[in-house]
Design a protein around this nucleic acid. Structure first.
Length: 287
DNA sequence: AACGTGGTCAACCGCGCCACC
DNA sequence: TGGTGGCGCGGTTGACCACGT
């Protein structure tokens, strides 16, 4: 790239923000909006680069930011979304009202990732006793691939239905064998119909137009204990509990999601996809 | 009380995407 | 159509804090 960093300019302050700087920034944005971040510091009278101002506003000063411990629901959502989206922190954060991508990223790196790794390690030590080991992780990876394939498949359905007024996206999904059944699909449909799904479709469709590749998208993070189809609303509780409890509980839910469940999902997805897709990539993903 | 260690998180950095000229 | 600049994202850093020895 070779572009000089915006903060290289002499005289610009770096490091922690002072309350005075915060006030200046908040007052200015409330009065004028942020406009061009590049020109904001000069207009507001701040000795900061625009990037620093944007970050400070987005991650700390924004009035709709939610503080405090992550809830059980948020905890589960992060794990599920990460399983589908990988390190797309902004997309994950978009599903968590009041949470920032930075906060989600930090929470993942400091709490969830460590816990998942620890749990995984423990299960590797006791594969026979738990019945959860390499094969189980392979199933999780398979589930993640299924989720990706499902989203790809549904993007085609949505595209087709957009030009055919008689069949709405909803009806296209409803007509599929999976629609009437349990929670896994509900979760993905919720994701699909959310901002994440919108973002995914926007990124995904151009790639599909020019490539037959239908299963992988972008560099893949290592598979996490993951993905397909937890009942997000199972607890119904939004209570704030200790982070340790949240993580243990959430992870345990994933461990409780057994191979049988994955097999069921696999069958449903195969039924949904197989009728219209004969690409080798589909076969390789599910065989 | 002093020091070491590990955890947390705000902030920075570098890069890629995209709009505009 | 290629160059440029702005913005946003993900990865990383380092200051701060809590806790243990």
């Amino acid at each position: 790239m070779g572009r000089t960093p915006c903060c290289d300019k002499q005289g610009l302050k770096k490091g922690p923000w002072t309350p005075e700087e915060d006030k200046i920034l908040v007052d200015y944005i409330k009065a004028h909006g942020h406009g061009s971040w590049r020109s904001l510091p000069k207009l507001a009278g701040l000795l900061r680069c625009g990037k620093s101002c944007r970050l400070r506003w987005a991650n700390y000063l924004r009035p709709d930011i939610k503080r405090g411990p992550f809830t059980v629901e948020e905890d589960k959502s992060i794990i599920q979304l990460h399983a589908i989206l990988g390190n797309k922190w902004s997309a994950i954060a978009a599903q968590l009202p009041g949470r920032t991508d930075n906060e989600v990223k930090n929470y993942w790196n400091t709490h969830l990732k460590k816990r998942l790794h620890l749990q995984r390690h423990q299960h590797h030590l006791l594969p026979a006793a738990t019945g959860i080991g390499g094969s189980h992780m392979a199933q999780w990876e398979s589930a993640r691939l299924e989720a990706e394939a499902r989203l790809s498949r549904e993007s085609l359905l949505f595209s087709a239905s957009a030009s055919a007024v008689s069949s709405s996206p909803a009806s296209a999904i409803d007509a599929a064998p999976v629609a009437s059944s349990s929670q896994p699909e509900d979760f993905f449909l919720r994701i699909w119909n959310s901002e994440v799904g919108t973002s995914f479709r926007q990124r995904r469709l151009p790639e599909e137009a020019e490539s037959k590749s239908c299963v992988t998208f972008g560099p893949q993070p290592p598979p996490t204990a993951a993905a397909a189809g937890m009942d997000v609303d199972s607890s119904g509780s939004n209570e704030v509990v200790a982070a340790e409890e949240i993580s243990d509980e959430a992870y345990q839910l994933y461990l409780d999601f057994t191979g049988d469940d994955l097999g069921m999902l696999h069958g449903q997805l195969s039924a949904l996809f197989a009728a219209d897709l004969n690409d080798s990539c589909f076969d390789s993903a599910f065989k």
